[in-house]
Design a binder for these strands. Structure first.
Lengths: 197, 197
DNA sequence: GTCTATAACCCGATAGAC
DNA sequence: GTCTATCGGGTTATAGAC
């Protein structure tokens, strides 16, 4: 790993552990083992380094989620998989948490990669939900955008509850609640179709 | 408003606007118009001031939510009301956001009021859900803890999505998704009971 | 591309007069 | 209870040699 990559890695880790404001270039330097001059050779300053770290986090996390949703097979099962993935609830989401860092949220440049990541997930999720509706797995009375936002919000909000409680249970409960609710309406949809026959 | 209250108010505002780490005692002093000496007379330091601000935020926000959920009347309508309240999604939640501030989340003292606030909401919400199940408004196949966590997570996660998108729509979509999903399973429950007759 | 040295400023906190 | 003055240290960033 070269100096540049080590700096980005250290910045990413520290922003996760301490947040943007509380992370100093000196700590980044010390953790990455890169000298002062090198750091300002590769990046104009803390801000540019943070942007690189955020872009890297998004690039790291997005593909796995996209793969999960884009895979072939039963749409509802893919949503279930999205809602069942392994996480570390008490550590928070490397991407989602950034929206709650005021210095990031108020900075259009830093927020851009986060916005794009969530927009992509939303788009994919809406597609899967539309597939499920087309296949009759879900009733057509539900709005795909609403459902997609609700599902992603459940995960992101689950982090909030888990950290507040210092217990991963609320995170798992929230996601299970969403899965079970979806399953219940899916059964309704099946039932409705039987009755119409 | 006396010096102490003005300091707490200013700290609360600044923590919301900038976060804990990025808020300096000097800014608090300047915004509140209180002198240096006064500040350190009332509070031992930034940490103690932050605790007072967090406690105040929780005390300010909790009663309205509790009142909403504790009111008499149709349980499902109360959940609907909880999911329909006015918010400022782009500004974030004064309480929930604190869980994503690493310096707050890693400090048991600062996190305590946040933990208690969410625990209280959860408790109230579980009661309302149990009422709804007892009345047959919801089927008994759903777990009240899961549902309660999902509902609060939807709201908290909605903030994340709204800030990421810099648009309040995802917040409203997520909450509407949860309401419509609940309504759909409620109709299922009614249908099931009719069939059993 | 990396190093050391240093600038200029702000941080959180304290001292002590009034 | 409030004021001004100040401390020691850390902050982000720059300068300039190698």
């Amino acid at each position: 790993m070269d100096s540049r990559a080590r700096l980005v890695q250290a910045m990413s880790d520290l922003m996760w552990e301490r947040g943007y404001a509380a992370t100093s270039p000196r700590e980044v330097r010390e953790r990455s083992g890169v000298g002062q001059g090198s750091m300002y050779h590769h990046f104009a300053g803390k801000h540019e380094l943070a942007l690189a770290a955020l872009e890297r986090n998004c690039a790291d996390l997005l593909p796995a989620t996209e793969a999960l949703l884009a895979s072939t097979g039963d749409p509802l099962a893919r949503i279930d998989a999205y809602l069942s993935r392994e996480h570390q609830p008490l550590k928070g989401c490397k991407v989602g948490r950034m929206t709650q860092d005021p210095l990031v949220a108020s900075d259009p440049v830093l927020l851009a990669p986060v916005r794009e990541a969530f927009a992509t997930i939303h788009e994919r999720l809406v597609s899967v939900i539309k597939e499920a509706i087309a296949l009759g797995e879900l009733g057509d009375g539900l709005d795909p955008d609403e459902l997609a936002s609700m599902i992603t919000a459940t995960i992101q909000g689950g982090y909030v509850l888990a950290i507040a409680a210092q217990d991963s249970r609320p995170f798992d409960e929230a996601r299970a609640g969403a899965r079970h609710l979806l399953r219940a309406v899916a059964l309704c949809a099946v039932q409705d179709r039987k009755e119409q026959k």
